[in-house]
Structures are given as structure tokens and as C-alpha cells.
Computed example of a mutant assay.
Amino acid sequence: MHLPVALPWIARDLGAGYGGLGIAVALFYTAYSIGLVINGVLGTWAPPWLLMAVGGVGSASLSIALSSVDDPVLFTVLWGVNGYLQSFAWPSLVKTASYILRGRGAEKGYAYLSTSWSLGHALVWLLSMWLVSSAGWRTCFVINGAILAAAASSIPPLLRGLEVGAVDGRGAAPRVREAALLALYTALVSAMHSASYGARHLLITYLPSYLEEARGSMAPSLLLPLAGSVGMVLLAPLFTRVGRERGPWVSAGLLLAAALLLWLFPQAYAVNAFAGLLLLAVLSAVIYGNEAQLTTSIPVAASGTRLSSLVAGVVDASGSLG
């Protein structure tokens, strides 16, 4: 998450424009997508804590190594490898949560769980803004890498004792049991997530630079993950109320609303900063709140716990491809 904040400095330091670094971002998401499917399969039998720890420590080590890179091509390749390493976490995290969050009201639990990455996103951006302006982007990569290494190292002692295998592998009685219907359901959810995730990461990647160039400060970009976290909590009761059968329909409606807001935001911001940021807050709440369910409760409702890491991996992979 620290790359978008450091992007203007990296572009100048390595002599690569936004277009060149855009290739690095695209390679990251491509590798991340492939890794999500691979690690989703691995998650059906490997201990979740092990996959999360391996990916976290690997990504942290690579972030630290990237701080010494001067060649834009090498930077692009290594950032792509980092995408694969980061893909270890999400499928295993969803599987772990699926054993704990079962039955009616699970949507709210998944929403609170999802705020971990949105609030973490905000904290990383806040720290990175200070680091790149005071110590440079290379120090930013080292510090963020060290923090991630410490966090990843804490996963085994925290989760190793969780006896997920003691729970019935069929999970919370999935509605869609037949393989063909599960595949169709996953494909439709994946298509929605591809559009939503693509829009969100368009904002994540370029919003700080856009605000910096438009009005001289990237600080308002923190509104994106913060308002998104609020949206996760606020929209969760809606998904609980409509039930898991109608959840995808609600998600589709929210996706259309997000598309309209995304179209309006830059036009409004060019005219009036306050109006633009207000639209950005609503847009963030809708996108993040919708994704919190698209990547957790909605796929788990179809797959059950046993295949939750695989289905969550496929859905999330479609998002990063978007």
C-alpha cells in the first residue's frame, strides 16, 4: 500500500514516468491474481497460518530489498513478485474467518474483519506520507517492510492453535451445492468484483498523485480508506437484512451507484474541492462496503467453509485482474 504514496518520488528518482510505473502496478496485480488462485487451492489443505506467515515475511523482505533498487525494469519485476507473495494472505484469512463467522449475522463479522485492511491502508498511507517527505521513498519501503515482517512473524503463535479442522468441512450449509452452479455463481460474483476492485485500485494507485498535482496535497486521499471502513460497517446490516440469496443483487445495485459516483468525482472536484471530497467519501463507503461482502460472505455462502479459500481466491483474483 505504500507504493501509491511513493509513486511521484520513485518516478523522479528512477527516471520512470507514471506510464512506466503503471506497468509495475499491472504486473503486481497480474501476479497477485495468479497467486490468489494457486494459494486458494493450497488453502484447501495447508494450514492457513503457515501460508499467511510465509507470504507476509516474503513480501516484507522484498519491500526492504526494493529500497536499494535503481533500475526501473528490475523494480517492475520485483514488484510483480511482491504481488504473488501478497496473494498468500487473503484466501487463508477468509477460510479462517469462515470457521468462526457462521450463521445469520456473519456479514457484520466479515465487515469488521475487512476494516483491518482498510484501516491498515489508511495507517500505511499516513506513515508513508510522512516518511517519503522527511526521509525519502527508500526509507519508506524499509520501515513498511520491517513492520510487515514483525506482523507476519506474529501470525504462527496467534493462529497456530486454532483448530479449524475440528469444524465440519461442509461449513454453514451452502445454498449452491452442485459444481456447475457453484462455478456459475462464482463467475458472476467474480465479474462484479472485477469491476469494483478495478475502480477501487484505480483510486488507490492514482488518487494521491492526482490530488498532489491538482491541489498540492495528497493528504485528502486518506479519506478513501477511512470512509471505506465506515461504509463496511454501515452496509453490513443491509446485507444481513436482505439475506444471502439476495445479497448479490444488492451488490450489483451498489456497483452501479459506485460507477456513477466515480464518474462524478473528478468533475465535482475540479469545480469545488469540498463537493468533490464529499462525493469521494460516499464513493469510498459504497465501494469498500460492497467489497467487504463480495469477497467474504457472498462467496462463502455458496462454497461453505471447506472450499472457502479456493472460491475467495478466485473471486479476489478476478478483482485484481480488473
Score class of each variant (00 low, 15 high):
residue 245 E to F: 06
residue 30 T to A: 15
residue 58 G to V: 10
residue 149 A to Q: 13
residue 184 L to T: 09
residue 129 M to S: 06
residue 299 P to F: 11
residue 278 L to R: 04
residue 32 Y to I: 01
residue 306 R to P: 02
residue 225 P to G: 03
residue 202 L to G: 14
residue 72 P to V: 02
residue 309 S to D: 12
residue 43 G to I: 01
residue 46 A to N: 01
residue 307 L to K: 10
residue 209 S to M: 13
residue 13 D to P: 00
residue 101 L to V: 05
residue 139 T to G: 09
residue 191 A to C: 13
residue 1 M to V: 08
residue 277 L to W: 09
residue 71 D to K: 12
residue 187 A to L: 15
residue 270 A to D: 11
residue 115 T to F: 07
residue 164 V to D: 09
residue 302 A to L: 06
residue 107 E to W: 11
residue 288 Y to L: 06
residue 282 V to H: 00
residue 128 S to G: 08
residue 281 A to G: 05
residue 215 R to N: 12
residue 53 A to I: 08
residue 283 L to G: 00
residue 253 G to P: 02
residue 210 Y to A: 14
residue 164 V to C: 07
residue 282 V to P: 00
residue 123 L to E: 05
residue 9 W to T: 01
residue 152 A to L: 01
residue 188 L to P: 08
residue 286 V to G: 12
residue 301 A to L: 11
residue 27 L to I: 14
residue 250 V to H: 02
residue 146 A to Q: 00
residue 217 S to C: 11
residue 14 L to D: 05
residue 2 H to T: 02
residue 193 H to A: 10
residue 243 G to Y: 05
residue 187 A to Q: 10
residue 24 A to R: 14
residue 228 G to R: 01
residue 4 P to N: 08
residue 213 E to K: 15
residue 244 R to Q: 03
residue 106 A to S: 13
residue 100 I to C: 03
residue 272 N to C: 10
residue 153 S to P: 04
residue 65 A to R: 04
residue 19 G to A: 15
residue 55 G to Y: 09
residue 30 T to M: 14
residue 54 V to E: 01
residue 46 A to R: 01
residue 229 S to R: 03
residue 50 L to C: 05
residue 212 E to K: 12
residue 99 Y to H: 10
residue 187 A to V: 13
residue 25 V to Q: 09
residue 11 A to D: 07
residue 249 W to G: 03
residue 98 S to Y: 14
residue 1 M to I: 07
